Amino acid sequence: MMKIEKHDDGKKGYFKLLDDEKQVGKMTFTWAGPNKFIIDHTEVDPGYKGEGLGRKLVKAGVDFAKENKLKIIPLCPFAKKIIEKNAEFQEVLA
């Protein structure tokens, strides 16, 4: 079963995607002040390519931003592309 966990130390953090207990994807972020964070990098295990898992990680970040009234600066080219393609994600852009 797939699940996403968020880890955050107050300066940096990441969302990791687990298939059962195996990590198959990760999206890292860095806080850029109290109300916004930068998505630095998104990666998915090559064996899971084409399954939309990177998008799920970006969506987890967007959902986290929406729930906490935060903004996102997507420096990761993949995350930027996903956010720009989805109108419902764009409200969180800084």
Rank of each mutant, 00 (worst) to 15 (best):
E5R: 14
K56W: 11
F78N: 09
T30V: 12
E84W: 03
K69S: 11
K26N: 04
F64N: 02
G25N: 07
V24I: 07
N86Q: 06
Y48T: 14
Q90W: 02
I82L: 02
A79S: 03
V58S: 00
G33H: 07
L93E: 00
D19N: 13
I83F: 02
E5W: 13
E84L: 06
T42N: 05
M2S: 15
E21M: 10
E91R: 07
G50R: 14
Y48H: 14
K22P: 15
F78P: 15
D19W: 08
E67A: 12
E43Y: 13
D8A: 08
K49F: 15
L17F: 10
P46I: 01
I72D: 02
K85Y: 02
W31D: 09
K26T: 13
E5F: 09
I4R: 02
K11W: 04
H7T: 10
L93S: 04
D63I: 09
A79W: 13
T30S: 09
Y48I: 11
V58H: 04
V58N: 03
G25P: 01
E84G: 00
Q90V: 10
E67M: 11
T30C: 09
V44I: 14
I4N: 03
G13E: 06
D20T: 11
G61I: 07
P77K: 00
A94F: 13
E84D: 05
M27F: 08
G50I: 09
G10W: 05
A94K: 07
E67V: 09
A60H: 09
K36H: 12
Q90H: 02
R55H: 09
I72S: 02
Q23L: 09
G54H: 02
K22I: 14
F37P: 01
F89I: 13
I83M: 00
T42S: 08
E84C: 00
K80R: 08
I82Q: 12
K81D: 05
Q90S: 07
V24T: 04
D63V: 15
K49G: 15
P74F: 14
E67R: 09
I73H: 06
K16T: 09
K80W: 06
D63G: 10
E43F: 11
L93P: 03
G33R: 01
A32V: 08
E88G: 07
E21G: 12
V58A: 01
R55L: 04
K16I: 10
M2Q: 14
D8L: 00
Q90F: 05
